[in-house]
Amino acid sequence: MRIGVITFPGSLDDVDAARAVRLAGGEPVVLWHADHDLAGVDAVVLPGGFSYGDYLRAGAIAARAPLMREVVDRAHAGLPVLGICNGFQVLCEAGLLPGALTRNGHLHFRNRDQALLVERADTAWTSSYAEGQTIVVPVKNGEGRYVAAPAELDRLEAEGRVVVRYAGGNPNGSARDIAGVCSADGRVVGLMPHPEHAVEDLTGPSTDGLGFFTSVLQQVVAG
């Protein structure tokens, strides 16, 4: 199964994301933001980093990159897409996910191991987990505070669109402790924490993050 990882100018975690795909048993495919072709991949990961130096707003310019038009079109047709950190910001800016990510409430960059409660274990990227499971993965961001209008938050909660929620402390002031959300069809998922940094005992606080990548491989095989 071929999983594309898109590199934007300023992406940092594209290599780790590709490594996580490989460790999960998939074939990572390097994609460049200025291309116009998704090279026939079965799913796409938008990695963390600081695309375009966070100029204008985090993820705003990357969301208008040539390859993102292709990602948006294919996502509407069911292509699984995972946005991690800056990738989550890009997905919100591209209109594939609701809400927005803003400057952390305390204004500090926060970098720590973070417990997350998995609330949806039936999305394309979380089916390897159990609903109600707690996982620990790194979180590292300066603009990770999830916001949306109160009525929009109520709608998302009612529709079960919160995929993961911060447990044991909210690192950035996100509304309702929301760490990640999904599209209505559960195929597009975005989260601020970094599952791709928790895939090996040597380098991560756990291997809990691997489940995101094994999930999509199962989805693709099943599909």
Binding site: P98, T102, V147
Partner: peptide, 8 residues
């Protein structure tokens, strides 16, 4: 569509 994000 670009300068502002109408969500926020």
């Amino acid at each position: 569509t670009l300068l502002a994000n109408p969500v926020i």
